[in-house]
Simulated assay, not measured.
Amino acid sequence: MTVHIVVADDQELVRAGFSMILDAQPDIDVVAEANDGAEAVAAVREHRPDVLLLDIRMPTMDGIEAARIVCAETDCRVLMLTTFDLDDYVYDALRAGASGFLLKDVRRDDLVHAVRVVAAGESLLAPSVTTKLIAQFTSRTADRPAPPPGSRLDILTTRERETLEMISRGLSNAEIAQAMVVSEHTVKTHVSNVLAKLGLRDRVQAVIAAYETGLVVPGALS
């Protein structure tokens, strides 16, 4: 199966470099390039790619607004690019529906792997990424009391709530299975149910939901 991708970055050399690396892969086809968010949205609407590799900071329309539009209108998965791993816009990008983010100095192999992972329906939610996401969430909610778990989670079973809490800690399916003493297949079912019931795209949004509903309190898992 070929992964169709649009690459959007306002820096021509960066855009061309990423496109060249990805297009050289036998299972990846770069169908279009864009130099700002508006062009990225137009390219996704025209080509209907599987993945949009999108810079966060661009002129005309930034990557966050572009991601919000693309995720609302299509099933295209969005992988954000940022210069710094503590970019102030990372949280907003994930909140908009992005499936993860990469630093622009990402290694060639990691770039290719990330695109394949996101295209397969997974998200880039390594523990280090989770830590940064939680840190940003904590800084945004430091002056507010944590809300009680909302009724939004009432539709989840006990096991599904436990699964959501473990996802928010950055645990993999294998690690969750070990903690619950169940099979990895069972965990995959729990994860799928959590995402479906809460209307979430992936594990990144599951982490955000866990904090926003008060299931997990910032600082409690540090």
Results as ranks from 00 to 15, higher is better:
Ile64Asn: 02
Ile64Leu: 04
Glu65Ser: 05
Glu65Gln: 02
Cys71Asp: 04
Thr74Gly: 02
Thr74Ala: 02
Arg77Asn: 06
Leu79Lys: 04
Met80Lys: 03
Thr82Asp: 00
Thr82Gln: 00
Asp85Cys: 02
Asp85Lys: 07
Leu86Val: 12
Asp87Thr: 04
Asp88Gly: 00
Tyr89Glu: 11
Val90Met: 08
Tyr91Leu: 14
Arg95Trp: 03
Ala96Ser: 14
Phe101Arg: 03
Leu102Ala: 05
Arg107Glu: 15
Asp109Lys: 13
Asp110Gln: 14
Val112His: 08
His113Cys: 10
His113Glu: 15
His113Ala: 15
Ala114Thr: 09
Val115Phe: 12
Val118Gln: 11
Glu122Trp: 11
Glu122Val: 10
Leu125Ala: 03
Leu125Ser: 09
Leu125Ile: 06
Ala126Asn: 04
Pro127Phe: 14
Ser128Met: 10
Thr131Gly: 06
Ile134Glu: 15
Ile134Tyr: 11
Ile134Leu: 13
Phe137Gly: 06
Phe137Trp: 10
Thr138Asp: 04
Ser139Cys: 05
Ala142Tyr: 06
Ala142Ser: 03
Pro145Lys: 02
Ala146Arg: 03
Ala146Ile: 03
Pro147Leu: 00
Pro148Tyr: 07
Pro149Val: 00
Ser151Pro: 09
Arg152Glu: 10
Leu156His: 01
Thr157Ser: 11
Thr158Tyr: 07
Thr158Ser: 08
Glu162Lys: 07
Leu164Ser: 01
Leu164Met: 08
Ile167Leu: 08
Ser168Asn: 02
Arg169Trp: 06
Gly170Ile: 11
Ala174Glu: 11
Ile176Ala: 13
Met180Lys: 13
Val182Tyr: 13
Glu184Gly: 09
His185Cys: 09
His185Leu: 12
Thr189Met: 15
His190Trp: 02
Ser192Glu: 12
Ala196Lys: 14
Ala196Leu: 13
Lys197Glu: 14
